[in-house]
Each structure stands twice: as structure tokens, then as C-alpha cells.
């Protein structure tokens, strides 16, 4: 076992844009792997989470599985971070909160354009949707918030390097963005 801090990441109700932004740190990723080792994350394809120092959550909470995964992360991570607009405030998916779940599903699976076999899926394998989409801090305690859709690679780099160096996080003006 390495004694480097272990990091896990996941995308809940998100678009993986925040993960893409993390990859946008480009060659600095070589520095990053010197600093940390990765646990569960789409980058390693590890499917279950072990005890970690840092958990990065992309995406909001939209269904039962999101809740379960988010709680697992909270349970295993010393520090949990909301990364990006959807984790921070629910983001674009919360636009469905303007409607009832029934209206949303009817629009997608019954009345929508190009629907051939109308009917709302009820398969037990499919996680049930929550009545509304929520930011992650409504479900678990969150230690840090990084806004942005997505946060820029520089923003993520600032956060990771300062956190790992044990410094207070101080973003320059151009790195705090909500869009």
C-alpha cells in the first residue's frame, strides 16, 4: 500500500463534464499521480470504494442509486467535495423540478416525439427517480464546494494542490465561476 492520499471520484446525476475538466489539467496529471493514488473512479474503472482521504462528487442527486453511492462515498471519504454546478446546487437537471415526476416521465416515455412503444419503464433493475433533483449537501455533509459548469482545469488544480499541501483554499477571481 502506498501512503499517498487515496482519492475516489464519481459522477451522479451529471454529464461527466467535470471529470473531463479534471483530465484537462493535461500534463499536470503526471504530477497528480505522484501526489495521490486513485480508488474508485471512472479513471481507474474500480467499481467499489475503499477507505479514502478525498472524494470528489460530480452531479446532483436524482435517483435512489445516486443516494446510495453518495452515502457510500461519505462513509468512506475523510473529505468530501462537491465538484461542479450539479453537485453544488443541482444544476441543469433541477430544471425538471419545475414539473412533477409524472409530467417528466409522460413527456419522455408517453407523449414525447418519436416514442414508438409508449409506456413508463417499471423494471425493478432501474433505480427509482426522486420527486426532485437535489444538490448533494441536502443528503450528506459536504466539506468543500467547487462551483462551475464545469469548474475549469485550473480551478480543480488549485483546489487539489492547495488541499494536498494542507493550505487554505484560495481561488483567484477568474477561477470562481458558476457557469
Amino acid at each position: 500500500m502506498s501512503d499517498k492520499p487515496r482519492v475516489a471520484t464519481v459522477s451522479l446525476c451529471g454529464c461527466f463534464g467535470c471529470h473531463m475538466s479534471l483530465l484537462d489539467i493535461d500534463e499536470r496529471i503526471l504530477q497528480l499521480v505522484q501526489l495521490v493514488s486513485f480508488d474508485r473512479t471512472p479513471l481507474t474503472d474500480i467499481k467499489t470504494i475503499g477507505d479514502c482521504d478525498l472524494g470528489l462528487i460530480e452531479g446532483g442527486v436524482a435517483n435512489a442509486e445516486n443516494v446510495e453511492v453518495l452515502r457510500e462515498f461519505r462513509g468512506h471519504c475523510k473529505v468530501l467535495v462537491a465538484v461542479g454546478a450539479c453537485a453544488v446546487n443541482g444544476g441543469i437537471p433541477t430544471m425538471r423540478n419545475q414539473f412533477s415526476l409524472r409530467e417528466c416521465l409522460d413527456e419522455s416515455y408517453v407523449n414525447g416525439v418519436g416514442v414508438y412503444h409508449p409506456g413508463i419503464p417499471t423494471d425493478a433493475e432501474i433505480p427509482l427517480l426522486l420527486n426532485q433533483v437535489h444538490p448533494i449537501h441536502e443528503v450528506v455533509k459536504v466539506d468543500y464546494f467547487i462551483p462551475g459548469c464545469p469548474p475549469s482545469a485550473d480551478t480543480l488544480w488549485t483546489f487539489l494542490t492547495e488541499l494536498l499541501a494542507g493550505q487554505p483554499i484560495a481561488f483567484p477571481y477568474t477561477q470562481i465561476r458558476y457557469d
Partner: peptide
């Protein structure tokens, strides 16, 4: 969602007890 899917199995519920803090 439960009402729409007509489900009430275990997976259609969220237990209270999972950890929410480090």
C-alpha cells in the same frame, strides 16, 4: 416514482441508516 412504477420492493425504498458522515 413508486406510485408510477407500482413498486414497493426493498429496492424501491431508501433506508434511513446508511452513513451520511465521514
Amino acid at each position: 416514482a413508486r406510485a408510477i412504477a407500482g413498486r414497493d420492493d426493498d429496492a424501491a425504498h431508501i433506508p434511513e441508516t446508511l452513513p451520511t458522515t465521514a
